[in-house]
Each structure stands twice: as structure tokens, then as C-alpha cells.
């Protein structure tokens, strides 16, 4: 007993050091396991206010860029209006009952980015919308250029988003031309490129081909822009192509984003749980 006591007395600094380090590691890797949501609830509540006032100041520096992107977005939306489409339906005898034919599947909530980073191994984005505005975890986020990430934690008024530039982020993507789909994730180094995997070798892929979301996950609707093919590699020992994708979103310059709300999410999850139970 005396020896034990003397041991503690002699190495008390080292023991303090080791126990605090272990505590740090516990916090860090526990939070990664739970998709980093544990701390975002705490951290984004504390720091969200500070970042919001800071962005309030710096936003003035980017007003021109921001209005440019909003004008472009407006133009794109205007093209989608029914007035901008030519009606070439000739068969006038057949009437289509439009009421009840289309049901809203996705709605979009606008949000402003109040904090952003691109240089870390896992980058976080904070938004000025939260639980009270209808955000929950596992919602997709995109802007007019392409996909941005996925909500991983919400407080009352703020949300933390895991950016595409995170080592844990995965999204189901497809080639727009041939509809072949695969998994896309970030390679961890360059903030403008990502890797698309699981496209079979026989699929013709050309540099410059468009990559869009597949709509297979509940995060994003179909055909949201992701990027273009930058490089295609064929390795003899693998059955799949290694495709490097040029991301169309400029992560260094995010201001306004859209958060996807999937109205059919509960039903999809119910279906998932049914399938799993039958296994």
C-alpha cells in the first residue's frame, strides 16, 4: 500500500497527463463514431452566435459575388417555369388531370452559411437554421452549383453540416449520360476533387462527363449536379474504374445553401426496417 502511494506521488504529473490525454481521445473518437453530432449540439450552440455576427460583417465584402449567383439562380428557375415551356401536346382529346397527379416529394429550406472550412481532414459548415426552422439530422444540403453536404447536428437555431470534404461523407452518384451509379467520397487532400468508385469497367466514361446525384439515398433528389469527370484510371487488378471528379461546388466561397427536406423519409425508413426484420 505504501509503495503504491509512493508510486502515485512520484508519477502524479505523468498520471495526470495520461489520464487527460485518454479523456481527449475518448471525446474525439466517440464523437466521430456518432457522426460528430454529440459535440455539434453543444459547440454550434456556443459558437454559432459569434460566427453569425462575424459573417454579418464579412458578408458585405462578397455582396457582388452573392448577387451574381442569385441572379444566375433566378434565371435557372425562370427556365423551369411552365410559362417558359412550349406546349407541344397535340392530342387534345386526351385531358390529363393534374390535380393529385404530382405530390410534393422534396421541399427546400434556404439557409446562410455562417462558418466554413476547407483545409481540415473533416470540414464542418454551420448554418443559421435549426430545429425551430424544421431542420433535422440526415438532410442533404446543396447550392446552385452542386451538392454541399449533409446535416449532422442541430440546435434550436443553428445546424452543423458535414461537408462533402469530410472523410466520413459518402454520396450515391451516377453518370448522367449512362445512368451507371457508384459511391463518391472525398480523397482528403484537394478541396476541388473527389473519387467516384464502383463504376464497372465496361462503362464508357469520357473526361468532362457530368456526374449527378442518383436519388437512391434519402438525402438528395435525383439529378443534382455534383461535378464533371477529371480523370479515369483503369487498374488491371480491379473490376471497377477509379474516377476522379472535379467538384462543381466551390467550397471556399459558400454563402447561401438549400437544405433538402424529404417528405417521404419516414415511409422509406419504415420500409428499411421491414426489410431488415425479414432477413
Amino acid at each position: 500500500m505504501y509503495n503504491l502511494f509512493r508510486f502515485f506521488l512520484r508519477y502524479h504529473l505523468f498520471i495526470l497527463f495520461i489520464s487527460l490525454e485518454v479523456f481527449c481521445f475518448y471525446l474525439t473518437y466517440r464523437s466521430q463514431k456518432y457522426n460528430q453530432a454529440a459535440y455539434s449540439n453543444f459547440a454550434s450552440g456556443v459558437s454559432g452566435r459569434m460566427y453569425e455576427s462575424y459573417t454579418g460583417i464579412t458578408d458585405y465584402l462578397y455582396l457582388r459575388k452573392m448577387s451574381d449567383s442569385l441572379v444566375n439562380e433566378n434565371a435557372a428557375l425562370r427556365q423551369k417555369l411552365i410559362e417558359s415551356k412550349f406546349d407541344n401536346l397535340v392530342d387534345s382529346a386526351r385531358t390529363i388531370d393534374t390535380t393529385g397527379r404530382y405530390v410534393q416529394h422534396f421541399t427546400y429550406i434556404t439557409a446562410r452559411v455562417i462558418r466554413n472550412s476547407v483545409n481540415q481532414a473533416s470540414n464542418l459548415i454551420y448554418l443559421n437554421r435549426g430545429k425551430l426552422q424544421g431542420l433535422t439530422r440526415q438532410m442533404g444540403v446543396f447550392n446552385s452549383n452542386g451538392i454541399v453536404g449533409q446535416v449532422i447536428g442541430v440546435t434550436d437555431n443553428y445546424a452543423a453540416v458535414m461537408s462533402v470534404l469530410s472523410k466520413d461523407f459518402k454520396v450515391s452518384a451516377k453518370l448522367k449520360k449512362s445512368e451507371y451509379f457508384g459511391n463518391m467520397h472525398w480523397d482528403g487532400i484537394n478541396s476541388t476533387t473527389a473519387t467516384l468508385e464502383e463504376i464497372p469497367k465496361h462503362v464508357p466514361v469520357k473526361i468532362g462527363d457530368t456526374i449527378v446525384t442518383s436519388g437512391f439515398s434519402e438525402l438528395f433528389p435525383r439529378n443534382i449536379m455534383i461535378g464533371t469527370v477529371k480523370k479515369v484510371m483503369m487498374k488491371p487488378d480491379k473490376n471497377f474504374l477509379d474516377i476522379t471528379v472535379n467538384l462543381s461546388t466551390d467550397f471556399g466561397n459558400l454563402s447561401y445553401v438549400y437544405v433538402v427536406k424529404n417528405m417521404r423519409r419516414n415511409e422509406l425508413q419504415l420500409l428499411d426496417s421491414l426489410v431488415k426484420r425479414n432477413d
Binding site: 479523456f23 481527449c24 481521445f25 471525446l27 474525439t28 464523437s31 460528430q36 459535440y39 455539434s40 453543444f42 459547440a43 454550434s44 456556443v46 459558437s47 459569434m50 472550412s117 481540415q120 464542418l124 454551420y126 452543423a160
Partner: peptide, 10 residues
Amino acid sequence: VFLGSMAMHA
């Protein structure tokens, strides 16, 4: 807390 990196800087 501000950078959202949990306890790595700590």
C-alpha cells in the same frame, strides 16, 4: 469548441 474539432486541440 469554436472550431468544432472536439478534443483534438485540447
